[in-house]
Design a protein around this nucleic acid. Structure first.
Lengths: 150, 150
DNA sequence: CGCCAATCATTGGTGCACCAACGATTGGTG
DNA sequence: CACCAATCGTTGGTGCACCAATGATTGGCG
């Protein structure tokens, strides 16, 4: 069986390309985020909080498609970094209210320079990136639909 | 600032779509791989070995774009699962020769049913998946070029 | 021929990511 | 009003993933 016709050929697997692309692009962010004291997952949480705060763990979990058990220690690290405060919601003591600190809010200005820097580094066409984004969104929807239908 | 014009809007970040797509598609594989006793990264290693074996850790690291330090314990788990053997290369004792066991070779037949099952589950157009694959490949190349130019 | 830099795999540390189990809180229902 | 099921966040366990440091082996160069 030739590589071209083998359905198990590594370089034909979309899942492989997806995983490698995710890791590789992540590596591009790393040196840009490191001076801000953020990892990429932490950066995504900050994006969510800059859009709207306070938010509960559950809410962040929904938006970021992330397990609450993953978020819990991550938020503690963001807290000890001084970017976030974790308080109980007065109305419902079960929930956590994650709010931005002053330092966390200020950080947004520096973060605004990141997306253009990434695009410049990749040196890719904006149109292609948008088309990729649309395609990825369709895959996510398809996978989530399949998930919930189980 | 509206969400539509905000460059930091979460749902406009390609990196976010990439990470979520990677995790979500991974979740689709999980129930299919679990009865075979494989995780998704282990599945990718097996794909590489079914294409060619024996291979050294370094070789697998290159092909899979994965840190040797990640591969090392993963291969040990594949060994204790009985799919792989880890021996030193006679010609160069520094290198490891990772070979398939009989069970590992036989497993390929079951694995062949996975890609079509995934495509069916996603219910997506084959043409779109191929186009996504091509797009991801370009991103990987762009990111890797940027990486090595640093 | 003996040393030395390069190569290779492993190890330890930090941080993600998922799952299952748990304890606290809450709101509805008998 | 008292229970009970649902919700929420946390915890512990396993497995990835990266980085830096380490130790063994090798091949070249003086």
């Amino acid at each position: 069986m030739t590589v071209a016709s083998d359905p198990l050929a590594l370089d034909r697997q979309v899942c492989f390309a997806l995983v490698v692309a995710s890791r590789t692009v992540n590596a591009i962010y790393r040196p840009l985020l490191e001076p801000m004291g953020l990892t990429h997952p932490q950066y995504l949480v900050m994006l969510a909080l800059w859009e709207r705060a306070p938010r509960s763990v559950r809410e962040l979990s929904d938006v970021l498609q992330l397990d609450p058990g993953t978020l819990s220690p991550l938020l503690k690290r963001l807290e000890s970094a001084g970017y976030v405060r974790r308080e109980r919601d007065h109305r419902d003591e079960r929930m956590l209210a994650v709010t931005l600190t002053e330092a966390g809010a200020v950080l947004r200005a520096r973060a605004e320079r990141i997306p253009p820097a990434i695009v410049a580094t990749l040196g890719m066409d904006l149109a292609e990136l948008e088309q990729l984004h649309a395609s990825l969104t369709r895959v996510i929807d398809a996978a989530r639909t399949a998930q919930s239908d189980t």
